[in-house]
Simulated assay, not measured.
Amino acid sequence: MASLILLCAVLLVLGIPFVPLAFEWRKPSDVAALPIPEAAFEDARALAVRWITLLREAVHLRALDSHAHDADQSTLHIEERIALERGRSEARVLYATQSISIGREAQATYVFAERSIRFRAGSRLANFAYAPRVDACDADLAGTVSAHTLRLRGECRFTRLGGQPITLGIGTGSTGTGSSVAGALDAEARRSVDDTHRTHRPMTDFVHDRRHRFGDTRFRVRGDLEMPGHTECEADLVVDGAFYLGEASVLRGNVRAHTVELARHAVIQGAVFAHRDIVLREMSGIEGVLSAGRALHVRRASIGRRGQAVTASAQEIVVQEGASVHGELVAEKSGRFSESCQ
């Protein structure tokens, strides 16, 4: 009998380390796949560099061999400046050593320029475009657009945009320079908003009345979590429900939740992953990688910061009034931008 009791005691002691494993097996705490589309892992900038390198080689070969000009005319159009006429559809690769203009209601497939590309109202991009500067107004950018500086105006549709920055929307602002309304919403500007009126509080103040688990700076919260306005906190959060960051508040850390919403002037200095929707209100911002499983709604807000390119991805992206993005916007199904607030 004593041997049996001793054996049970030994087994109990040996089984203690496996108790947390049993709880995790019964109800996993944080193992769901992150909502990141496959397109977000593609390197559009590297692809653009390869295209430009090949096109420059084609120009060099054409200069050496006059017969090469006739051989590649069916697939490649090379000029110093190219202007695609209104309503025309061009299936060839367009490459300009200076600039390209895509006329109203015209459609281009591949567009590359050494200086700039301009998409006029009603124009459409089918596949890929790259230039150091790209401007689009009321255009349908169904393909990938990569640039150093990318600006959208009016009513635009897009799939994948890349630039540092991507400026969506224009406005006169207080300076009267015609710069983007959201272009002034970089991280440096946001950090200066009411810093002296924020109260630094530990995350335990917000989760003490609900079920949660935490490590040194990482908290997992059952249910919804709301941080009040004008507060400052440092923590990494995994929230089973909705997460709301109050007006003019700052969270230094990463967030994973069912839905995420930032009030006016709120800032998250970290990455954000939502299984459903992410909403950025006026003058708010997220400085890290951002991914929504369903929809991303942005209104006069900013994503990323100068010198730190990030990727913002979602099934559907809706941008209203304006936005500033340093990095890439990837819409797996559809992306829409409107300068109006409708």
Rank of each mutant, 00 (worst) to 15 (best):
G103R: 06
P228C: 05
F214C: 09
V279C: 10
D209P: 03
K27F: 09
S180N: 02
H197K: 12
M1E: 10
E42G: 12
E57V: 00
I268Y: 00
S174N: 14
V10C: 01
H265A: 11
T167I: 15
G223S: 01
G15D: 10
R151T: 03
C156P: 14
Q73C: 09
V250H: 13
V59P: 10
R276V: 00
V49R: 12
L64K: 13
V239N: 02
S284W: 05
D140R: 10
A2H: 10
A242D: 15
D236F: 06
D216M: 13
P20E: 01
E261G: 00
C156M: 09
C233P: 01
V221W: 09
S89P: 13
A9F: 07
R201F: 04
S334V: 01
R276Q: 08
A129Q: 03
I170G: 14
Q107E: 15
Q98K: 10
R92I: 07
D194P: 12
A44I: 00
V279G: 13
A108G: 13
L290Q: 07
A235R: 08
R306P: 12
Q308W: 06
A323V: 06
Q308R: 11
I117T: 03
A147E: 05
R26W: 12
H265Y: 12
A274E: 04
A113P: 06
A58I: 03
P20N: 03
R160I: 08
G169F: 04
S66F: 05
G215Q: 01
V298G: 04
P132F: 03
G293Y: 08
P202K: 02
E287W: 12
A248Y: 06
A301C: 00
E332R: 10
V93K: 04
G143N: 07
W51R: 06
D43S: 06
R210S: 13
E287A: 13
T53K: 12
R81M: 09
D186N: 10
E339A: 09
H326C: 11
R62K: 08
G87S: 05
L290W: 00
R86W: 02
L125V: 02
G176E: 05
H77K: 04
S74C: 02
Q342F: 07
L4K: 14
H148S: 15
D209C: 05
V207R: 01
A292M: 05
F119L: 03
D205Q: 12
L161P: 15
R62V: 00
A274Y: 01
S3I: 07
E316P: 11
I286T: 00
R45K: 09
V255S: 07
H326I: 00
I82L: 03
Q320M: 14
H208C: 02
R153G: 12
K27L: 11
G246H: 02
T199R: 01
E226Y: 07
V181S: 12
H230L: 14
H208P: 08
Q73T: 01
E155T: 00
R213F: 03
